[in-house]
Simulated assay, not measured.
Amino acid sequence: MTFKRLAQHLEQWKREAVGSWGVWIEDLTSAETWTWNETELFYAASIIKVPIMVAVYKQAFAGRLALADEIILTAEDQVGGAGVLQHLSPGIRLSVQDLTTLMIIQSDNTATNILIDLLGTEIIRETLSELGMKQSSFYNKLMIVPAASEGLNMITAADIAQCYRKLARGKAVSHHASRQMVEILKKQQLRDCFPAFLPNNQDDIVGSLPKWELAHKTGTVTRTLHDTGILYVGSHAILMVALSRDCDYHQAQPQISRLAQLVHQAYSDQ
């Protein structure tokens, strides 16, 4: 009954939605889903960093790199947009683990591009395929305009849901690797979308455990705002994907936040 009641609220959200949306909401225990335009392609923006993280762990699991390996930051690596590495001094050494963490929790574009160079395009594409992201594509590094681009980094709500489902179920690379990646996603510092309308977890504690946790990754470019992840409420895990376009940040942000609020309310009211 919980998900059926939630679906009614989601239908109301849909009727009031502004812009174009690709949405996937799924109770990972019951496998009940609510979707909207789930196979429509959207520009990936920083959501592509989630399967790139999986590709890093895949290579580490295969012994082709170590998460402790260190890479020296160069001036040529530094690009704009999100992240702190663009502001730091070239010559510092960062582990692959640190670069991966920065790529996710601060959406650091410099860290992302270093990892893309380390992995190579084909490994990332292979990872998309292995995750079951059949419609999605990877072509380019971030914040760089290639001289001759083959295409754009694209995703669908269904594809990114498949990625998160494997992470949640311990089937992305390995159970241990999946758990590590989910823990990185829980440390997300960009919290203006899904978490914006959720209760403050510092004030929402049962015993020593928070009532809810969120493992997620945002993405934004001009007139495109996404948030994607897994909301843990009590014993429930709910997969949430919200991809948008054709609406500005100030239109999309409250709609994404409201979506997560509806999911949280449905499961916390039990």
Results as ranks from 00 to 15, higher is better:
1 M>Y: 15
1 M>N: 15
2 T>A: 15
3 F>R: 10
4 K>C: 10
7 A>L: 13
8 Q>V: 13
9 H>A: 15
12 Q>K: 15
14 K>D: 12
16 E>T: 14
17 A>M: 15
19 G>L: 07
24 W>R: 11
24 W>V: 11
32 E>P: 13
33 T>D: 06
34 W>H: 07
38 E>P: 04
38 E>M: 14
55 A>N: 04
56 V>A: 08
57 Y>N: 14
60 A>C: 13
60 A>E: 14
61 F>G: 14
67 L>I: 10
70 E>G: 12
70 E>T: 15
71 I>D: 04
71 I>W: 08
74 T>G: 02
75 A>D: 10
75 A>W: 02
76 E>F: 07
76 E>Q: 05
82 A>G: 06
84 V>F: 13
85 L>M: 07
86 Q>L: 12
91 G>I: 04
92 I>K: 05
95 S>R: 04
96 V>A: 03
100 T>I: 02
102 L>K: 02
102 L>T: 02
104 I>G: 05
104 I>F: 10
105 I>N: 08
106 Q>R: 12
107 S>L: 01
107 S>F: 03
108 D>M: 01
108 D>K: 03
109 N>G: 08
114 I>F: 01
114 I>R: 00
116 I>L: 05
117 D>H: 06
120 G>K: 11
124 I>P: 00
124 I>L: 03
129 S>F: 12
132 G>I: 04
134 K>R: 12
137 S>Y: 04
138 F>Q: 00
139 Y>H: 11
141 K>T: 00
143 M>A: 03
145 V>N: 12
148 A>E: 15
149 S>D: 01
149 S>N: 08
150 E>I: 11
152 L>M: 03
153 N>A: 09
156 T>S: 08
157 A>T: 03
157 A>N: 03
158 A>W: 08
158 A>K: 07
158 A>F: 06
159 D>C: 09
160 I>A: 05
161 A>E: 04
165 R>H: 09
170 G>C: 12
172 A>R: 00
175 H>G: 12
181 M>R: 07
182 V>L: 15
183 E>K: 14
185 L>Q: 04
188 Q>G: 10
190 L>D: 08
190 L>T: 10
191 R>P: 00
192 D>A: 03
197 F>T: 10
198 L>M: 11
202 Q>K: 11
202 Q>W: 10
205 I>D: 02
205 I>R: 10
205 I>Y: 00
206 V>Q: 05
208 S>N: 11
209 L>R: 09
209 L>G: 01
213 E>P: 02
215 A>C: 01
219 G>L: 03
222 T>K: 13
229 G>A: 08
231 L>P: 00
232 Y>M: 01
234 G>N: 12
238 I>M: 06
239 L>S: 13
239 L>P: 05
239 L>D: 05
243 L>I: 09
246 D>L: 14
254 P>G: 07
257 S>T: 09
257 S>C: 10
260 A>I: 05
263 V>I: 13
264 H>W: 02
266 A>Y: 00
266 A>W: 06
268 S>C: 04
269 D>Q: 15
